[in-house]
Design a protein around this nucleic acid. Structure first.
Lengths: 353, 353
DNA sequence: TCCCTGCGGGAAAGGGCTTTCACTGCGGTA
DNA sequence: TACCGCAGTGAAAGCCCTTTCCCGCAGGGA
């Protein structure tokens, strides 16, 4: 690889001058030298060594991002928001996938710190895991102590800046909607129980049912991976245990799509026999059949705000922005098929008639 | 940020010794010193400056990847394959989105070269653009001249190692299937015509029709963005121009989903009235309704192979791996509603009866 | 004419790390 | 006893840039 000295030598100037030309320094350089340098750069196909540059200027510019998985639409949307602001400010993003592995998250914090990022953004649910949370906070604190900025999206652990989708209210909206449609036998297809996102959404759901004087028994909840296959499998288990279910809440849209697949496989019409409601409103939600009723989160906006927090002026007190959830009614929800209000024996009578 | 010298000072050793302990060098260090160093590292929360390290060891390790858009499932799958091999070998991946902007692709080649990546992988269709192709090849050649390895996925331009999905045969399979089902009026929802992927797939389709003694007139093709909305819009234009269409080939699955949306909006039942066939077989294809008939490409495998090529031993002659396309029959295709073989007037008689 | 100013350019000092090389003791061989 | 070799450590030379500092020189004011 050609180096700056190579360029300088070829152009017959000092490395200092070559550097000034290449970086458009404010120091003036005569046109003649400038051209000689530029010519040398072109001939040698010179590209500055980024590491040497970053070492020489102690200018931290890049921003580190840790998400669970960029190819998951939830994070793809958030990342789009992050990217937008970063690009506007000429910042490079380093994106890392933790695949929901806490240890990998810890490793990536170190890695990004080592890469001298100006800021760090952690997106995605936190974990119910004391030890991990403490460790993570220590690392983040150490990073912040050296002037790094940190913001989290959708997780509580961190004591600094945060962008929080209102998961609880989202869960509440889903629950209330189903209650108003007359559903009693509601099953929940949930993500891993170790994730705070799962428990937050469940809490909202519980609250909605509670207001109707009902509870959400554990047997009506199945925990699985937060993806399509997890949703399909959890729905199957739910249905096996309780075939009378008239509604299913999936704690994210991927799982909802899995639920829809299982229902289709079992020939249970949606929404006539079973209603389904998702969470997140990812783009594909409009395109499944029937189009998915879901709780919308302003994903792109979450990314925009987190990046703005982290690149904006530092404030004394940490800022927490709570972004609202919104129910999007589409076609996977409808009135409960038949009210299971009458006690089970009554229903048996029904069936007999 | 604490530096290595800080650690060394605190541990009462030289930076050299500290470095040896931290990197597990082969040079032996007494246990006592080792422990002192480790303790200092922990106390100072020391993380090595990655740029300084990369500068000091001339060891190139990271691999650069340029894709059109990681959040597009097509590239998400390929990336998964790339990632798998890279992780196995302890390599870091730097992933850049070009968003199908040739200039940005050029820039990223430079950027990644500047970051001293050991290899470069370009995934995604090439462009019908002589000037760009030449420029890109120059840059890649310059990079290879300094010991860099390059592989491309799904593009012809580059003269070196390549992994090529068999787009042409894929198009052929789609065309033949539709012919065998008796379709005559076939419309094509195509990606941007500047992309070689678009023209390759079209060429295969043409060949299949050609074998039936038919051609594919331009008026039966609509070019649009390679995404859901592009597909929806192109389908609408196609249908407006030619309401008699009995089949639509979408040149990727995202566009097919858009096509399905438009057909649903117009109450044209799939596949009874119109058959639809997609391309790529991305995961969501099974979950739309009806499940999408499509041409499968081994996306993950493409990633695996490209990364293996680039990290494996260098060979004299460039290797090109052609990966097969396969037709996956699902439920969006069926026999043509009524054979348009009889001339239009005959059909009008039909309708009258 | 002399001095000061300011412009254009180069020398050199880092930036944080790895690694070679040289040095000090030590046990072991002739 | 004299010497060789080696384990364990530190000094210092890079890696490739950026940027400060300084120098020479030409032009303008006194």
């Amino acid at each position: 690889m050609a180096t700056l000295s190579d360029v300088a030598r070829r152009a017959g100037v000092s490395p200092a001058t070559a550097s000034r030309v290449i970086n458009g320094s404010s120091k003036p350089v005569t046109d003649e030298l400038r051209e000689r340098v530029l010519a040398a750069v072109a001939e040698l196909q010179y590209v500055p060594n980024a590491h040497a540059q970053l070492l020489a200027r102690s200018h931290r510019s890049a921003v580190g991002v840790i998400v669970h998985d960029v190819s998951d639409p939830y994070f793809a949307e958030i990342t789009r928001g992050l990217q937008r602001v970063a690009t506007d400010q000429g910042r490079l993003l380093m994106i890392c996938n933790s695949y929901r592995d806490p240890d990998r998250e810890l490793e990536y914090v170190e890695l990004l710190r080592g890469h001298q990022v100006a800021a760090l953004i952690l997106a995605g649910s936190g974990y119910h895991d004391e030890a991990f949370t403490r460790q993570l906070n220590e690392k983040l604190a150490a990073y912040e102590a050296t002037g790094g900025r940190v913001a989290v999206i959708g997780r509580h652990e961190h004591s600094g800046d945060a962008v929080m989708p209102d998961n609880r209210t989202g869960g509440y909206l889903a629950g209330r909607e189903l209650c108003e449609l007359g559903h009693r036998a509601i099953g929940v297809v949930a993500g891993p129980r170790i994730l705070t996102t799962t428990t937050d959404r469940l809490a909202g759901l519980r609250q909605a049912l509670g207001e109707q004087g009902r509870d959400l028994p554990e047997r009506r909840i199945r925990y699985a991976e937060f993806d399509r296959d997890g949703g399909a499998e959890a729905t199957a288990r739910l249905l096996d245990a309780d075939p009378e279910l008239t509604a299913i809440v999936a704690l994210n849209d991927s799982m909802a799509i899995g639920a829809l697949a299982t229902l289709r496989a079992r020939s249970l019409p949606v929404p006539q026999r079973v209603s389904v409601i998702g969470f997140d409103d990812m783009p594909i939600a409009r395109d499944v059949t029937p189009p998915l009723t879901t709780v919308r989160l302003p994903l792109v906006d979450m990314g925009v705000r987190a990046m703005s927090l982290v690149l904006g002026a530092e404030t004394l007190s940490p800022r927490v922005e709570l972004l609202p959830a919104e129910l999007i009614r589409r076609d996977t929800t409808g009135p409960a098929a038949r009210s299971p209000r009458p006690a089970p024996r009554a229903r048996r009578a029904d069936t007999a008639s």
